[in-house]
Amino acid sequence: MKSLNPSYLVIIIQTVIAFFVLLALTRFLGKKQLSHLTFFNYVTGITIGSIAANMVVLTTSQYKKYLISLIVWCALTFIISYISLKSGKIRVILDGQPTIIIKKGKIDKKALSRTHVNIDDLTMMIRQYQVFSITEIDYAILEPNGRLSILKKPEFQGTQKSDMQILPASPAFIPTEIITDGKLLEQNLLEVGKSKEWLNNELKKANIKAIEDVFYAEIQPDGKMFIQKN
């Protein structure tokens, strides 16, 4: 019986190493790199597509090597998927866990840092749910597939005013970020027709001396300020 060609053994070893290296790098990139896919599917799909694309333009001898690499990669994918079905710990390593970004109406800065999500990313994601103010949210959870799940506060849930034939008055303002990460968004302040003097007065009312002491601030529909300190 012929022994395995040393060059093919090298290919197998390199493929196994590349598999876990790419998986680790993808986990490091953070959840917002994804859409509907899990981390594991993300890595597998890109790699298989890349290997398959390279095989199209290779010579016969090179094709065999890439074919072996593709088979080994797919076999590893199947094995890891099967193990993850049997083990919750493996699923956590591969796909990650849901992360609470907003808890009881407060933004968790440490959670944002761990998931590589900034304030602008967060406000963009909540607007996709027709939520324009952080104050409407009780809990927000970043799922392993990169999507945000939102639980609104009780007063913003349930029966809509339109169901009771009540026509609410149009809000004076659209909820708008004024300060993020201790920095003033001057253009946003101008768009809502407010001055720096007005903002400074609002900060004084909240016993805040400087803009740098504010992690996040937004103007509410009624003109009041929601402020979260650093």
Rank of each mutant, 00 (worst) to 15 (best):
135 T>R: 09
174 I>H: 11
95 D>H: 12
180 T>F: 05
187 Q>Y: 07
101 I>S: 08
106 K>V: 10
157 Q>H: 05
89 K>Y: 13
108 D>E: 14
100 I>M: 12
115 T>S: 15
173 F>M: 04
94 L>Y: 06
105 G>S: 07
146 G>E: 03
148 L>F: 12
167 L>H: 13
91 R>H: 05
103 K>P: 01
132 F>S: 15
131 V>A: 06
146 G>L: 03
173 F>I: 02
97 Q>Y: 08
117 V>D: 02
112 L>V: 03
91 R>K: 15
137 I>G: 01
164 M>Y: 08
173 F>W: 02
104 K>D: 15
99 T>H: 07
180 T>W: 04
139 Y>L: 03
158 G>A: 02
101 I>C: 07
103 K>E: 14
88 G>I: 09
140 A>E: 02
136 E>G: 04
154 P>I: 07
151 L>C: 11
103 K>V: 00
171 P>I: 00
147 R>S: 10
171 P>L: 01
168 P>E: 13
154 P>H: 13
169 A>G: 11
112 L>R: 04
180 T>Y: 09
131 V>W: 01
142 L>A: 05
85 L>Q: 13
111 A>K: 04
129 Y>R: 13
153 K>I: 03
174 I>Q: 14
103 K>M: 06
196 K>E: 14
122 L>R: 05
191 E>V: 06
175 P>F: 02
176 T>D: 01
143 E>S: 08
188 N>F: 04
143 E>W: 00
190 L>N: 13
136 E>K: 08
138 D>K: 12
175 P>V: 01
174 I>Y: 11
177 E>K: 13
89 K>F: 12
143 E>D: 08
109 K>D: 06
85 L>V: 06
132 F>D: 15
196 K>A: 09
121 D>T: 04
181 D>P: 00
130 Q>C: 03
144 P>E: 08
119 I>G: 05
178 I>K: 06
124 M>F: 06
159 T>R: 12
193 G>R: 07
120 D>Q: 14
116 H>L: 09
117 V>C: 14
85 L>A: 07
88 G>V: 10
160 Q>I: 07
180 T>G: 03
105 G>N: 05
131 V>M: 09
87 S>A: 11
159 T>W: 05
168 P>Q: 12
199 L>C: 10
193 G>W: 00
112 L>T: 01
95 D>Y: 09
128 Q>C: 09
126 I>Q: 10
129 Y>P: 01
141 I>Y: 01
158 G>I: 00
156 F>M: 01
102 I>F: 02
101 I>A: 10
122 L>F: 10
183 K>Q: 14
121 D>H: 13
85 L>G: 11
106 K>M: 13
169 A>Q: 15
180 T>K: 15
91 R>E: 13
164 M>I: 10
149 S>V: 07
117 V>F: 07
176 T>C: 00
106 K>T: 09
122 L>G: 01
128 Q>I: 01
179 I>F: 02
116 H>D: 00
142 L>N: 03
185 L>M: 14
129 Y>G: 10
187 Q>F: 06
152 K>N: 14
196 K>T: 13
188 N>R: 08
97 Q>D: 09
149 S>R: 07
154 P>T: 11
124 M>L: 11
103 K>Y: 08
191 E>R: 14
88 G>L: 09
179 I>R: 02
171 P>W: 00
120 D>E: 14
114 R>F: 09
186 E>I: 11
135 T>M: 05
93 I>F: 15
198 W>T: 01
97 Q>L: 05
95 D>F: 03
115 T>H: 03
190 L>K: 13
139 Y>W: 07
194 K>Q: 14
119 I>C: 09
